[in-house]
Design a protein around this nucleic acid. Structure first.
Lengths: 233, 233
DNA sequence: CGTGTAATTGAGTAGGGTCAACGTGAGTGG
DNA sequence: CCACTCACGTTGACCCTACTCAATTACACG
């Protein structure tokens, strides 16, 4: 357990007693694909860190539609802030893949923060990054067309969970997680139909290689052009 | 100066030496309506707190459209996180009104944080609240129609800078800041034309009393119904 | 009273949502 | 190994929301 904790960038550097305390209040959890880690509205009693696989946070709207707030990969914390506020989880967290997480009691995290202040600075930095990304998405959703948003979402995913693939000399980027049209729609604020149509267009143009729940970027540069709206229409 | 600082909730409670240090690196600034406090891309050397008036943070899109990230009123910090990262401001900050702000050098804020850790906890709470609001907006922009988003934006503003007005026994809520159709459009991710049309509808239905750059909510409850989509279409 | 900015309103249009039908691939069990 | 099933994906037709373009009006200010 201690070994896992010390590999998490957010926690590494903390003095041994602090880590020990955290370890005592941690538990490992295995999640099958599609399994729910916590549900929107549950009291937030623990903070979770992804150790393997990918996990996503979704919010349900009253109209039944789901919106993906974020996708979290290796060593990223989920539910970090809520735990500090003794609040309830703002969304539902679902494993996208066979995943393992380590769950640490909120109380232990709060203790660690007060005992080891630099920890708080790291938390602030993470929050800062998330807020910036949220603002980016707000800007996109407010002003940009679906194709462009989709291109950006795909590139963001590639950045986060992309792996380079060399197939007979050609380098491509594979999005390393199951990725349905539906989940892309929930990431970009559109419908799976529109996503499907756009991906088909890109496929025809040779930009990507899309399959069932998977996506390989063949020509990243051209996708960037779409994301930056540098293509003349 | 010290007096101003000690009235800011985020800083109140800090020990005197910390406040003294902050005060030495603070300066007051008066902003006329429309004046720019800082510009997108400027190096973030200071954190600002609103002492009077209102200020808004906007981001420019490549397509020329502006998006309002947030409106900040009494005692709210602007540029808080960026200063910690030695980064550049993510948007342009503009006074909506005749306003005064107190600007504190980023270095002094960082010193205060390390010398007085509880300060960081407060910062985390503020960031948490902002992130939640950002997620709300993402959810709205992804899934909801313009009229509903507009209703929510108006209610949020009322919550933040609304003042109750009693006119011969009738209680109404006035949004206490200059508020053009254009700025409402930038808050909701639409165009001023659509905002104008919807406000006209609401006006006709007697929900609001809209004028040039001002808005009074006459029947808040019905606006809530629209915001919650409880009106049968 | 003139001028500039904000607001209104109409007409036309397109992006993308909705509805619907069909195709396809991965498991599952006989 | 094949048939069955289910979830995922594709594509077409239609339509509506909201954007664009454009002209006009109202208001505040000097």
């Amino acid at each position: 357990m201690l070994d896992h904790l010390s590999h998490i960038p957010l926690l590494s550097g903390a003095p041994a007693p602090v880590l020990d305390d955290l370890a005592r209040e941690s538990r490992l959890r295995n999640l099958a694909r599609g399994e729910i880690l916590f549900t929107q509205g549950d009291p937030a009693l623990a903070v979770h860190f992804v150790l393997s696989g990918r996990v996503r946070l979704i919010q349900h709207t009253t109209s039944g539609q789901d919106v993906t707030i974020g996708v979290f990969a290796l060593h990223e914390p989920v539910g970090l802030l809520v735990a500090l506020e003794e609040a309830t989880y703002p969304g539902t967290c679902e494993a996208l893949d066979q995943s393992t997480v380590i769950s640490i009691s909120a109380a232990a995290i709060v203790r660690a923060m007060t005992q080891y202040p630099p920890f708080m600075l790291k938390v602030i930095k993470i929050l800062h990054a998330r807020l910036m990304e949220a603002n980016d998405r707000i800007r996109e959703l407010s002003a940009e067309r679906v194709e462009r948003r989709l291109a950006r979402a795909v590139l963001r995913l590639a950045n986060k969970v992309g792996v380079k693939e060399e197939t007979h000399g050609v380098s491509r980027i594979r999005i390393d997680m199951p990725l349905s049209r539906q989940s892309l729609a929930e990431l970009t604020g559109t419908t799976l139909h529109t996503v499907s149509r756009i991906l088909s267009d890109w496929q025809r143009a040779g930009l990507i290689d899309a399959g069932r729940e998977q996506l390989v970027i063949v020509r990243p540069h051209e996708l960037v052009l779409i994301a930056e709206e540098l293509t003349q229409p």
